[in-house]
Each structure stands twice: as structure tokens, then as C-alpha cells.
Amino acid sequence: MKIFVCLANVPDTTTKIKFADQKFDETGVQWVINPWDELALTRAMELKEDAGTPVNEVTVVTIGTISSEPTIRKALAIGADNAVRIDAEPKDSYSVAWLLSEYLKNYEGDHLVLTGIESSDYNGFAVGGMLSEFLGVPSVSGVSALDIEGDHAKVSREIDGGLEQVAIKTPFVAIVQKGIAKEPRIPAMRGIMMARKKPLEVVSPLSFDNVTDMLDFELPKAKPQCKMINPENAKELIGLLQNEAKVL
């Protein structure tokens, strides 16, 4: 069985965000694998390494220009067997999901698709669900544990106030969140060397339309200064929360 892991190329989470000319200012930005996608990749690798599962190949798929290749190489260094880059600038969740589906729909073998629940750039929470609908396959969202037995997967998904264990047949799209893997893997030197030689297929995109646009970017407004309370008189805080902030 093959696992496709969809990766978004995003600014490092510690990036100081700036906007210029009505766009995100990419100057000096470090690009990384979207944190949730990185956890998905880590879980995919664990499943492949587990002899008890039928998983024998992990392929990462990214929509991005050539500038996203260092991020894709990092995924190969972590352990993915091969990579596909659909050569387009991501516009919105809808068009990204459609481009992914146009590529994935041709795959006929036994497989599973993993996506992160959101991306840390435009926070759309949408690509995984949209992709499953374009493909016409089931989806499970909010997945925090995933195991495979034969052609079945057992997944845990978060529900409001608890967890649900769900059984589902492959293929489907698992939309994963925190908990799916303990910590993202860091590429080892050997992995980095091997990644250079692993196949990275570049696919030309079909023409596509986005359905939403982002504009009028701005930074958050500065917060008024924090009111400091003497630790010797910590009790004063409760009065302030009650009478001044009116939150108690």
C-alpha cells in the first residue's frame, strides 16, 4: 500500500510576519513543511517501517514553484521514497485541492492520502476535505491516531469533548492533527545525502481557477500595555478582573 502525504510549503512558525505591496513579504523567510503535514509524514514513515502493515511506499505531493523544492527535499530526507511537485503557485485551498485531486485520481493501486488539518499560512482548514470531495472518497477529519490492518484503517478522531475510534476501508483521506505522531522527525545526515538522489517528479498543472482571494493584509493592532500587579498583592488581580475587565 502506498501513502500519499500532501505537503504545504509554509514560512517557519517563528517568522516575523510582514506585508508589502498587498502581499506577504517573503524577504528573509525560512520555508518549512507545514507542521501538521510534517506530523502526517512522520506517521506515514512509522507505518511503512512497521512490518505488520501493508504500507511499502510513501510519496509526498506538493503544489508549488521551484522555490518549494528545498522543503520537498527535506521530506525526502526524513524518509519519503519519492516526491511529486505540481508546478503552480498555490492560490487558494479550492484550487490546491483540485490540482492534488487531478494528480491523485489517476492512481489505481491500494492507497491512503494524508493531509494536515490546516496550514499555518492562510489557516484555511480546507484542503483535505476538499480533496476527498473532488476524489469522491471518504474522509475522516481531526485524526489523532492512525493504524492500518489489511485494507482497513483504524483511526481516532477528536469529537467535542472526547475521542471516537472509527473503522474505515482504504482508500480515504485522513486529515490529521496533533497527536498523530509524537514529534516530527528530524532528517539525519544519511537521509539528507540520500534525498538528493531520490526521484522528484515535476508535473505541469492543468489550468485552474481559484474561488477566493486574499487582500487588505494588515498586522495585528498593538495591545495596550500590560497592567502589572505587585506579587505581594496578587489578590488585587481578582478585583480588577471583576470590576475593570468585567470578565468574572
Binding site: N123, A126, E158
Partner: peptide, 22 residues
């Protein structure tokens, strides 16, 4: 929430309706 995040993207495609999350 968990339900809306699971359904809204699928509905966006099904209805061809642009989605704004959160």
C-alpha cells in the same frame, strides 16, 4: 469545530461555494 471543519470543505466542493474558515 470538529464537525464544521470536517464538513465545510466537502460542501464547498459539492456546492461550488467558496469557503471562509474561522
Amino acid at each position: 469545530n470538529n464537525t464544521g471543519k470536517a464538513l465545510a470543505p466537502r460542501l464547498s466542493v459539492r456546492l461550488k461555494a467558496g469557503l471562509v474558515s474561522a
